[in-house]
Amino acid sequence: MSAAPGPAGLLHPVAGAFRGFARYVQGVMGADAYRKYLEHHAAAGHGTPPMDERAFWRDRTDRQDSNPQGRCC
């Protein structure tokens, strides 16, 4: 819903809908966390370069080690 539909989306509405659904599931699963981190990093204008993908995911799970999130019953 953020980006405007690209030409492919206009040509193939089914493919576009599928892509939208896939993007939604990715969001729910948290698969887009790195992309969001990069967006934030670029927007916030830090002087330091962002973590690369491997380092980001390492950092993410390692932080969960000391900050566990509950899962409900």
């Binding site: 699963m29 790195y34 980001f56 995911w57 799970t61």
Partner: peptide, 10 residues
Amino acid sequence: LRYLRPGKVM
């Protein structure tokens, strides 16, 4: 996820 393909959650 850690070593082979980091971040490929889906």
